[in-house]
Design a protein around this nucleic acid. Sequence first.
DNA 1: CGATTTCATGTAATCCATTACATTGCGGCG
DNA 2: CGCCGCAATGTAATGGATTACATGAAATCG
Lengths: 355, 355
Amino acid sequence: MSGKGSKGGRKDGKGAAAEAPPARVSTVKEIAAIAKVSVATVSRALQRPEVVSEATRQRIHEVVKRLGYTPNALARNLRTARTRLIVALLPDIANPFFSEVIRGIEQVAHENGYSVLLGETQGSVVREQAYADMVAARRADGIITMSPRVPAIPIQGRQPVVNACEYVKDGQISSVYIDNVAAAGVAVDYLAMLGHREIAFVAGPPSSPICVDREQGYRLALQRAKLPVHPGLIVTGDFSIEAGERAVEQLLAQGQSFTALFCSNDEMAIGAMRALSSHGLSVPDDVSVVGFDDIRFARYTSPPLTTVAQPKNALGREAMSMMLELLSDAEVPPRKRVLSADLVVRGSTAPRRPA
Amino acid sequence: MSGKGSKGGRKDGKGAAAEAPPARVSTVKEIAAIAKVSVATVSRALQRPEVVSEATRQRIHEVVKRLGYTPNALARNLRTARTRLIVALLPDIANPFFSEVIRGIEQVAHENGYSVLLGETQGSVVREQAYADMVAARRADGIITMSPRVPAIPIQGRQPVVNACEYVKDGQISSVYIDNVAAAGVAVDYLAMLGHREIAFVAGPPSSPICVDREQGYRLALQRAKLPVHPGLIVTGDFSIEAGERAVEQLLAQGQSFTALFCSNDEMAIGAMRALSSHGLSVPDDVSVVGFDDIRFARYTSPPLTTVAQPKNALGREAMSMMLELLSDAEVPPRKRVLSADLVVRGSTAPRRPA
DNA sequence: CGATTTCATGTAATCCATTACATTGCGGCG
DNA sequence: CGCCGCAATGTAATGGATTACATGAAATCG
């Protein structure tokens, strides 16, 4: 019985003159007709092979393969009310920090049969909302947002939203992020340990809780080191390279004296280093610089940047895992997951030069 | 008659007394029932308002708005056989060159009601094919690929594929790219003009036609400058920063003497600069370095990198425009669009130091 | 041996919006 | 006056798969 196989009987496949050799956009119906079974059986053979008898299953699979049939995902999705698509919302794709988080998301998504829809918002609330509405329109199953604003999805029931890298106080949103207070603290502790007493800080936009946390970490570390918090040493930037340059210009213009500078992200640190050296100040001899994120280029600045390494890939992977959990089980409560970040010491920091 | 509305009549729905107020996931049917019209009219009021009478249209829109109704995109897509999704296939999201191209794609897509599905392949043919199959499964309308391999989509008829940044000889695929021969030539001409006579070249993977072109441009420029093409001065890398470092190591290990180095992309140039300086060679005093792409960080290396600026955003925008054209008009023939690239002179190049 | 499961498969409802075609009512024209 | 055409709307087919329920046959049980 089992020995027969497909070899025997008749000439296989493409030689069939009368049949339609080029694969048309076949449907279940066609497959069913050719395999002489009902559409239900075809669907079952593909979805839950174990409920179909061995013989029928093989026959169907053979036909499916021969015609190159792929079930129409739209029809399936309509029926199952699942698109297996999630939107990754982020302010800026060109930011290498986000690209690496996205990659983590994409990996886990892919491992689980999901795909990632890219939603760059450029900070626009309108676009953010437009992507959120895609979930309402059943074009996507959920949203992972990397901005501190979490859009409301106009559906009833639980919001399929995960906040990655950022978080909001609201207890209803699942989030994955690092302990920014602690991470910033470690960086500043290290600078203090090197003997620096005037440590400047380039903050991020205060609208984002994580930026507030990083500043908080900075302040607490200064306290631990018994150093005064000098408001003149704190400047705010918007995470761009240019903001880092401007921050240094501003500090210098104000005549602030400082021997160390902690920036809320690597790009601002890169800008800061550029501005420092164009003012004839050497990094790290005159000023030590520490960044945040550990983007790929941090290793290749000159000098290589000392920075707080966020587990970018893990943040993305964890965010997507939480999303899968949310989607599969309507009961799981929202949760916050806090990962840890480590200081990576490279060449942009040095002991304070004895004056 | 029209004034009554839904408030009056009877208790709504399935007997759930307290339920009603929160907006359920309404459907056309519901809207139709409430607005006292047929589903067809509702659909028309939303799709082609001009064919519906003023009064009806307003009534329907009011109900739609009140219930926060959004048509189910899956159902619509099934019917219209369009997902308004396109896949952007690229080897590596973390590469800033691609992120900026993607951004261009995303912009045009968004302007035209399309969304971008992210397909990172990590160079895997399997994943490439998996994304191509999504088009066959009607999960996406087309593919923009940024790799030199163009996957075959198992559908009959024209392939909805656009090749961006790369291109294949095959005349069937629409492509947007720059004139790599000319662009590389300009860079090398410039080095020659600065007096360099031993110009090394870090090539990209020869499997990609654009890399072959860049090498060709290098060779032609050397000929124009009446300089010999020395095989020992050509090394191949894989576009990574590390490959740039290795390339320099190799050149130095072989005892090659060179005063200029042209790299097939900026990341390899960054790696090369790092390797040169760690060997005590100064850029640009000892060796001039030129990159390719002009990624955002090129401006912030030290010294700032002289490089060939690809119109990244335009490449993306143009690719998506071509895709829209392909999708809307089954007749347009595939075409190749060649954009131009300019040399951006920064600090990593200098006249050859008189020996 | 008749009754009850169990297994494999078939029939038809369902998901929800779009749209071809049918219908109705009304003003215009010969 | 009767027919035509147009405007507005309704009815029902359609897209393609999934799946609840039904059916028939074989297997198991008392």
